[in-house]
């Protein structure tokens, strides 16, 4: 049966294992709990808290990409990883570019007109 061969072949290509899902789930759970406890405890505030939360989010994203989405485990040539890298580049340009332009614009507008006037 050709169809069965294709099934077996594509099942071999899929990289999920029970161990990977277990590790991915535990790590995601712990990182999520850390993030929420950190935000709820109010022991940190301002920039240090923001930086720590972003780092925890990136760590969990890497965990899920590795253990749930199996990034970087496909056969060569690694097109999926390449497309992923390009996406990260576009997202960084888009997000950082937006922040830069908008905060710069805000600063310039703030310095010219007081806040009360700009609302009227």
């Amino acid at each position: 049966m050709g169809n069965d061969d294709i099934l077996i072949e594509s099942q071999k290509e899929w990289h999920g294992t029970l161990k990977a899902y277990g590790i991915g789930f535990l790590a995601s759970f712990i990182l999520t709990a850390c993030s929420f406890l950190l935000a709820a405890s109010k022991s940190l505030a301002g920039l240090p808290l923001v930086i720590l939360l972003v780092l925890l989010a990136i760590a969990q994203a890497i965990v899920q990409l590795r253990f749930f989405l199996h990034l970087g485990q496909e056969a060569k040539p690694r097109w999926e990883t390449l497309v992923f890298g390009f996406m990260v580049l576009v997202v960084l340009i888009l997000a950082l570019g937006s922040f830069w332009i908008m905060y710069d614009l805000n600063d310039r507008l703030m310095s010219n007109t007081p806040m009360e006037q700009s609302h009227d």
Partner: peptide, 9 residues
């Protein structure tokens, strides 16, 4: 992270 945690903390 960005909406809920940073919004409340």
């Amino acid at each position: 992270t960005f909406v809920y945690l940073m919004g409340v903390a």
